[in-house]
Design a binder for these strands. Structure first.
Lengths: 205, 205, 205, 205
DNA sequence: TATGAATGAGTCTTCATTCAT
DNA sequence: CATGAATGAAGACTCATTCAT
C-alpha cells in the first residue's frame, strides 16, 4: 500500500494533527479545546489546521474515527491470533481489550465526549451510526465466539446469544465507567470476574 | 415538610428552570444550549435565571443533582417495597430501573453530558465525586440483595459479590448505551436476559 | 424652617440614602457601585431608592450637591466668624478647610468621581455648571478677603486679585491630589506653607 | 532603536488603538466607552483590540501610561534645553507645560478619569503608584530648579523647597481644573501670574 | 503550502429599572 | 410607602474561520 510521497506527507501531517487534537480534546473536551490549543500542541500554525480539516467538528470526527479504528483493531487482532476453547478465547479477548484501554485510561474522557457528541453534536447522526456499527461489530465478534462454543458443545444451546453478547460488550463500557469515577475500582480484575460469571452462565453444567 | 410560602414559590421556580434546562441541555448539550434558550423555554426572562443560579455551570450542576436524586429514588423505592426471594427482588429492581429510564430515554443524552462533564467541566471533580457516590450507592444496594440471597441459601457463597454488583449495575449503563445508538436494540428485554445470566451464574445449582 | 412631619420624614430618608450612596460611591466609584449595594448599605429595599430618586444618575447628582453644600458651609462658617487682619483670616480659612477635608480624606475619591462626571456623565453640563459656580464662590470669598487686605493697607495694591485667588483656591485641590497619591505627603503642613508664600507675595514689603 | 519590521507594525497598531481609545475614553469616560466604540473609531474589528490588549482595563491603563509618558517628556524637554536664571527657567517650564496642555484641553477629561481610576478602578494601586511617581518626578524637577536658584543667590535660602515645589506643581492641576469648568477662565494667563507670585515669594528682596 | 493577524457572530453575565403585591 | 422578583438591554470577551502574504 504505497502512496505517492506528497500524499504520504499529507497523511502524516493529518495524523500529527489528529494526535494532537486527541490529547487536547481528551483534556479539555470538545468545547473547551480551541483550535489554537490544538495547533500549538501540534507545533503548527492555526491556519494550517484548516488545510487538513474543514472545521473543528470535522477534526473532532476524524479523531473519533481514528479511535474507533484503533480499538477495533485491538479487538480483532487478539482473537484471530488465538485458537483453543471458546471460553478461553472470550477470556483472552476480554483481557486483551481491558488491558488495551487500561493503558490509555486518559483517553476514556474522549469516549465520553464522543458519546455526548452522539447526542448533541451537529453531526450527531454520524456518531450514532458509527457507534451503532461498532457495537454491532463487537457484538458480532462475541456472538461468533459464543456460537462456536455452542457448536463445540462447550456452551449450552438454550441461551440468547445476542443478549449475552450485548451484556459482555456492555461490561467493557461498564467497567471503564465505574473505574473512571472511582480510583479504587479495579477495572481489569472486576472485568475478569464478570466475564467468569458470564461463562458460568453459559457453561453446559 | 412545610416551607414558608415564598420559599416554596422560589423552590417551584427553581424547579421550573431546572426542568426547562434539563430539556434544553438534553437536546443541545451543555455548550450548545444557551441561557437564552433555556429562559425562553421556561417562559421567563434571561436575567431571571441568574436570580436562581449563579452561572450556567451552576445550573447544569443543579440539573445533574436533580437527576441523580430522581434515579436514586427510582431505584430504592422499588426494592424496599418488595419482599420475597432475592432473585425476584433483583429482577424487580432491574425491571423497575429499566422501565424508569426507557420512559425517559430522551434524558439519556443528559447522562452522557454529565459523564463528559466529569472529564472536562471546570467542576469535573464535583461530578466525579457525585458519580462515584452514586455508583457506590447502587452497587451497595445490589450487594445487599445478593448478600441476602447468599444468607438465605439462594445464591452460591463462593462468588465475588462486589464484582457481580458492579457487573449488574454496569449492565444498566450498558443496555442504555447500546439502545441509545441502535433503535432496534431492545433495552428492556436484553437487560432482563442479562440479569437472568447473572442469576444463573449466582444460583446454587 | 418647619416642614410638615411627613415631608421631614421623607427628607430624612432621602438623606439616609444620600449618605449611604456617598459611602458606596466613594468606595466603588459611580459605575462600580450598584443600586443594590447602596440600598443594602442603607438598610432599605432596592425599589425604595426609586421612591426618592429617579435614577442612579440622579442619586449621584444629589450626593454631589450634598457635598458641595457641605464644603461650601465649611468654608463660609469659618471666615464670617473671624475678624482681624486679612492675612490671619486667609490663614484661618486655609487651615479650617484643609482640616475639614483631611478628616474626610476618604471622601476625596468622591471629588474625583465628580470631576470625572463633569467630563463624561450624561449630565456633565450640570456638574460643570455647579463646579464653575462653586469655584467662583470660593474665589469670590478669597478675593474679598484680599481686597479687604488691600484696603486696609495690609497687602500690595498692584496684584492681580483674581489670579491669586485662583491660585489659593487651586492650592486646596492641589494639596489633596498630591496627598491622595502619596501617603507621606503632609497635606495640612504643605498647604500652610504654600499659603505663607502667597501671603509673602502679597505683603506690602 | 530599530525594531524588527513586524514588531514595529504591531507597535504601530497598538498605538493606533491607544490613540483611538484615548479619544473615546476622553469623551465617554471609562465606563461609558465600549470596546465596540473604540474599535469602530480605530477602524478595526472588535476582536482585534483583544489581540493587543488583554482587557478593557488593560487598554485603559495603556492609555494612561501613554499620556504620563507624553507629559513627562513635555516637561523635561523644555527645561533641559534652557539655561539662564532659575526664575526664567521656571517660568519657561511653566509656560511650556501650560501651552502643551492648553492645546490638548480635550484630553484633560482623561486626566480626571485617571484620577478617578486611582480611587475605584480594580487596579487602583497601579494608578496611585504611577501618579505618585509622576508627581514626585515633577516636584523633583521643580525642586532642582529652585535649589539651583538658591545656590546662585537668586532665591532666598530660608524657604521650604519641597512645599513650594508642591505648590507650583499643584498650580498646574489647579489651573486646568478651574479652566475646565469655566470657559472664561484664562488658564495660561492665570498660571503665569501665579508663577509670578511664587517667584516673588522666592526672590531675595 | 503554511501562517497568524483580523474579524464579528455569539454568549454569558450584570444591573438599572419597573411594578405587582 | 416599601419591597424585591422579574426583566432585557447592553457590553466584555472568546474563538472558529478566513485570507493576504
Amino acid at each position: 500500500m504505497q502512496l505517492p510521497e506528497n500524499k504520504q506527507l499529507k497523511e502524516n501531517k493529518k495524523n500529527l494533527i489528529i494526535e494532537a487534537a486527541s490529547k487536547v480534546f481528551a483534556e479539555k473536551g470538545f468545547s473547551g479545546a480551541s483550535i489554537a490549543d490544538i495547533a500549538a500542541y501540534a507545533g503548527i500554525g492555526k491556519g494550517t489546521t484548516y488545510e487538513y480539516f474543514d472545521s473543528k467538528e470535522d477534526l473532532f470526527f476524524a479523531v473519533f474515527e481514528w479511535h474507533v479504528e484503533q480499538s477495533s483493531q485491538a479487538a480483532t487482532v487478539n482473537i484471530t491470533a488465538l485458537g483453543g476453547p471458546a471460553s478461553d478465547r472470550l477470556s483472552a479477548m476480554n483481557e486483551s481489550l481491558m488491558n488495551y484501554f487500561v493503558d490509555k485510561m486518559d483517553i476514556f474522557s474522549l469516549v465520553m465526549e464522543f458519546w455526548a457528541a452522539s447526542a448533541s453534536s451537529k453531526s450527531r447522526e454520524h456518531y450514532k451510526q458509527a457507534f451503532k456499527d461498532t457495537y454491532r461489530e463487537f457484538r458480532g465478534i462475541v456472538s461468533s465466539l459464543i456460537q462456536d462454543g455452542i457448536e463445540r458443545g462447550e456452551f449450552r444451546s438454550d441461551v440468547d446469544v445476542a443478549a449475552i453478547s450485548a451484556g459482555i460488550v456492555g461490561t467493557w463500557d461498564a467497567m471503564f465507567l465505574q473505574g473512571w469515577f472511582d480510583e479504587s475500582f479495579d477495572i481489569a480484575d472486576t472485568g475478569k470476574k464478570c466475564m467468569a460469571i458470564f461463562l458460568k452462565g453459559l457453561s453446559i453444567k
